[in-house]
Design a protein around this nucleic acid. Structure first.
Length: 960
RNA sequence: GGGCGUGUAGCUCAGCGGGAGAGCACUCGCUUCACACGCGAGGGGUCACUGGUUCAAUCCCAGUCAUGCCCACCA
């Protein structure tokens, strides 16, 4: 076997992937022990339109680390992959695609369009799956699922129908967030509120018939600051175009300024003068008397606050806009429509929603106008009449669609809702009682906060791509919800036959000559994408069928995601999971017992990565350049809990170097005859250096296990890094060199075998982090080891080995060499110079160490020889190592002044330490109240420093 | 307005009651027979500020300042 000096990831990543594939290494249960527990993670399904960004890379790296370790530990592992159909995103992409071929969706039938989507999906969709494979994600790819698959669609239907039957899904007409670009409703979560520069316009709403009143303003002490006669009420608004739909003006009941005109009518100062609408001045607790003029226009159909006020006060809701956000262009001429509206106002009482909705209160000259154009015209018209009081510049919060980026309109429409409040209760309990817990724990607060204030979830979307709502409407618009049309039809027939009325005879007649679709119309809307995502942990396992996979792998273990998905997805999976999944006793089974929330990845300055800023790091480019292993290790090493990840390519370079280091260490071991023995037993190891590295390996394994069990990926990565580089490479391999270069014999054999064993341990420990290079190195050493398996299916290291004696020996060796190097550097002794040294005042133990470790010390410390002596030779540099003093004999070359200075500095340092401890020990409160072992520890440290100081002092004396 | 978080070496970050750490950057020295994507040795920090608890505080508590994010209906 020959290995290049540098590890080139691009050459072997594809090959290693093939190795895993042909070993079937990622299949559910691969390599599992008999009677193994299951370990399941469902992937957060990426959008079918998606491509791998750095957030995906982090998310899937962390999952893969968990999965690969559990697999190696012998669990029955399933990492369930798949994709989300991403309703709006996909429809958008396909529509754009079609537009390039001069095809408009509106010119296609629904089925034609859906065919286009499916063929787009088959040709261009799902590139992210291959990108995940490049990252090394060890999902069971044979089980890939798609939220629009037959099985998952069946789950969606069942859930919708059952929730409807239980009254937890219902249809309602209320204000929703409307996206005028996509012409669909969206949920609260899909709205981003962004602060933008805006204006607030103050207008006069004249009182009916030119009436006047005494307007009085007072300061806090009740002194009158303004008194004037007014024939108007002052209204402020950020959205003048909605004035056309005003239903009232509201003031606070305690606001004395307006008390004289409560119950009177005022005029909306827009539209043809002869048909200005009059609206009542009412009281409500909503207006804040201290804000603006204290009077608020109430536009119930176009503002969420106003909607509440309007409903409370029986004010009609006038819809002004069409689905594109333009001013309505339907109905009768404005004059006629305004009369209808006035008739309603005069009649009083609760207006019929549908009747009001049919009224188009947009003046004729505004009809069909874009909403922003209409705003300009309203302002200009009012200004021209002299009714504008002022324009205020103001930062305002404006809602935008998270996909379309256009301004969202509150719109009065019929939509389907999930009663989230009811479903949230048991989902809150599950977390409250610890059956599901968040890591880090503080995210539970965020979860509770949202779940306890949850609003009805709008689940219908006016799109074509998605799960079509299984609701059918009869000729009288009666709703029948069922899993298919046949059942719905049965329900309808029974319904109509059972109810006397105009439709009974009609149905009886149709029954004789039935044509599908003649009696029932299906709801055209589809469900919110997140509705199907909410079922992902069990729908992917076959539910509603009782499959073996469902029994085996549900409940899943941990869900790994970023905090921005808690509301969209985690909360909804919790709601659906506890509602639909029950154990044998009917108790809810949560979809996962742990939710691990990781950070968002930022650029190196903490800025959000975005195309416009040009600071996007593309994981695929990084993989090409540095290898998937380097990227993965970097992400893991930086994934500390509770902190965002500021990713700099410098770090990736550093971990690429780490991969190269590992590569060369194994290369060196191979060249040195490392022997991978399957029957290697640490208990039979005799040499201290080998016992020491096994002790350290054992510690590293324990650290990594503990860290990964606690989802502290960064700690695990740091332990693996330190052990591999700073202990194994920097010390162990160096210390082994004399033996490896020496004569054949038991010592060399043991070195070769131990070295090979520890390398296997390192490869296994690093495998979850760096699967490619470790798998490659594992196969490089195949011949000697007689490997049975790919590393991915090999056992996770399980070593408990400790030799205190060996650790003490080697720590002494390391200290001696380190100190000598330090002295060399300080005294400008060339690294190449081989020194002669004697050890003075050595204990029996140290003498024994010197005897056994002598050759190693000489080689690694670059000594000509180290002998024992009773006293320090003249003209030597002395350093205290433990209880002994090492004297470096330099003859004439020694710079006595420099050496005196060095020793004096050392004494100064020791004096400082001793003084600090004395201060502590001199404090009676400390000696009396601190734990005995802490006090004793300080005393021990003090005597150590004291002894060292004596020896350094002696060395100084000898210099004269 | 509510909630969560962060301020530690030039930079990016660990640590979190008893001797201030890592990586990168920096300085110095190395053609040491695995590796210059390397080896060795260093310099560099009133651990934001002010109080408090404690024998002991970078760490716990309170407040201040700075800074980031999430949620929210001030027209």
């Amino acid at each position: 076997m020959t290995m290049e000096t540098t590890f080139v990831p691009a050459d072997l990543e594809a090959r290693i992937t093939d190795t895993w594939t042909s070993a079937n290494a990622f299949a559910a249960g691969a390599g599992a022990r008999e009677d193994a527990d299951s370990y399941t993670i469902v992937i957060p399904p990426p959008n079918v339109t998606g491509s791998l960004h750095i957030g995906h890379a982090l998310n899937n790296t962390l999952q893969d680390i968990l999965i690969r370790r559990k697999r190696m530990q012998g669990y029955d592992v399933l990492w369930q992959p798949g994709m989300d159909h991403a309703g709006i995103a996909t429809q958008m992409v396909v529509e754009r695609d079609l537009a390039e071929r001069q095809i408009q969706r509106r010119n296609l039938t629904r089925d034609e369009f859906l065919n286009h989507v499916w063929s787009w999906k088959n040709e261009s969709g799902g590139t992210i799956i291959n990108q995940l494979k490049r990252l090394g994600a060890s999902c069971d790819w044979s089980r890939e699922r798609f939220t629009m698959d037959d099985g998952l669609s069946k789950a969606v239907l069942k859930v919708f129908v059952q929730l409807h039957r239980e009254g937890l899904v219902y249809k309602d007409k209320r204000l929703v967030n409307w996206d005028p670009q996509f012409e669909t409703a969206i949920s609260d979560l899909e709205v981003e509120n962004i602060e933008v520069d805006g204006h607030m316009w103050h207008f006069k709403y004249p009182l009916e018939g030119g009436a006047t009143y005494e307007y009085v303003e007072k300061d806090e002490d009740g002194n009158v600051t303004l008194r004037e006669t007014r024939d108007y009420i002052s209204i402020a608004t950020t959205r003048p175009e909605t004035m056309l739909g005003d239903g009232a003006v509201a003031v606070h009941p305690s606001d004395e300024r307006y008390a004289p005109i409560i119950g009177k009518l005022c005029e909306i100062p827009v539209g043809p003068k002869e048909h200005r609408r009059l609206i009542p001045i009412i009281t409500d607790d909503y207006p804040d008397p201290d804000f603006g003029s204290g009077a608020v226009k109430i536009t119930g159909a176009h503002d969420f606050n106003d909607y509440q006020v309007a409903r409370r006060n029986h004010i009609p809701l006038y819809r002004l806009m069409d689905t594109k956000g333009g001013m309505r262009d339907d109905g009768e001429p404005y004059a006629r429509e305004a009369e209808k509206a006035m008739a309603i106002v005069k009649a009083g009482g609760e207006p019929d929603k549908n009747e009001v909705d049919a009224i188009n209160l947009v003046p004729d000259e505004y009809r069909g106008m874009d909403r922003f154009e209409a705003r300009k015209k309203v302002i200009a018209d009012i200004d021209a009449e002299g009714l504008m009081i002022e324009v205020e510049d103001k930062r305002i919060m404006q809602p935008f669609g998270d996909r379309s980026k256009v301004v969202i309109e509150p719109m009065l429409t019929d939509q389907w809702y999930v009663d989230a409040k009811t479903l949230a209760k048991p989902a809150i309990e599950a977390v409250r009682e610890g059956r599901t817990s968040f890591v880090p724990k503080n995210w539970e607060k965020t979860y509770f906060e949202w779940m306890e204030n949850i609003e009805p979830w709008c689940i219908s979307r006016q799109l074509w791509w998605g799960h079509r709502i299984p609701a059918w409407y009869g000729p009288d618009d009666h709703i029948f919800v069922a899993e298919d049309e046949e059942v719905a039809l049965d329900m309808a027939v029974q319904h109509y036959l059972a109810h006397e009325g105009p439709w009974k005879a009609w149905v009886e007649e149709k029954m004789n000559d039935f044509k599908p679709g003649e009696i029932l119309r299906r709801d055209p809307d589809v469900l919110d994408t997140w509705f199907s995502s909410a079922l992902w942990p069990f729908s992917t396992l076959g539910w509603p069928d009782e499959t073996p996979e469902l029994a085996r792998y549900y409940q899943t273990d941990v869900l790994v995601t970023a905090f921005d998905i808690i509301f969209f997805w985690v909360a909804r999976m919790m709601m659906m999971g506890v509602h639909f999944m029950k154990d044998g006793h009917g108790k809810p089974v949560e979809p996962f017992h742990t939710v691990y929330i990781h950070a968002l990845v930022r650029d190196e300055h903490g800025q959000k990565m975005s195309k416009s800023k040009g600071n996007v790091l593309d994981p695929l480019v990084l993989i090409d350049e540095y290898g998937a292993d380097a990227l993965r290790f970097t992400l893991a090493a930086m994934a500390a809990q509770g902190r965002e990840i500021k990713l700099a390519t410098q770090r990736i370079v550093g971990y690429r170097n780490f991969a190269t280091k590992l590569w060369n260490a194994v290369r060196f071991a191979q060249m040195s005859g490392a022997e991978h023995k399957t029957d290697f037993d640490p208990a039979n190891v005799r040499e201290p250096v080998n016992q020491w590295i096994l002790t350290e390996a054992s510690r590293a394994i324990a650290e990594i296990d503990e860290a990964l069990d606690g989802y502290r990926f960064n700690d695990a990565a740091a332990s693996a890094y330190r052990f591999t580089w700073n202990l194994f490479c920097d010390w162990y391999l160096e210390l082994l060199k004399p033996t490896l270069n020496g004569p054949d014999g038991p010592a060399k054999d043991e070195a070769r075998a131990t070295m090979a064993y520890v390398i296997d341990t390192i490869l296994a420990l690093l495998h979850p982090f760096m699967p490619f290079i470790t798998e490659q190195l594992w196969s490089e050493t195949e011949g000697a080891a007689g490997r049975r398996n790919v590393l991915a299916l090999s056992p996770w290291p399980d070593l408990s080995f400790e030799s205190e004696a060996a650790a003490a020996d080697l720590n002494w060796v390391i200290e001696l060499i380190t100190q000598t190097r330090s002295v060399r550097s300080e005294m400008n002794i060339p690294p190449s110079a081989r020194l002669t040294a004697v050890l003075v005042g050595a204990s029996e133990a140290t003498k024994a160490r010197l005897a056994s470790q002598g050759p190693v010390l000489e080689r690694v410390g670059r000594f000509e020889a180290i002998a024992l002596a009773d006293s320090a030779p003249d003209g030597s540099i002395q350093q205290v190592v433990g209880e002994a003093t090492l004297c470096l004999q330099l003859g004439d070359v020694i710079d006595l002044d420099a050496e005196r200075a060095r020793l004096a500095k050392e004494i100064e340092r020791l004096d400082g330490e001793i003084a600090r401890i004395d201060k502590k020990l001199g404090n009676e409160n400390f000696t009396a109240r601190a734990p005995e072992e802490v006090v004793q520890g300080e005393r021990d440290k003090r005597s150590g420093y004291e002894a060292e100081k004596v020896k350094v002092g002696q060395a100084l004396e000898r210099l004269g």
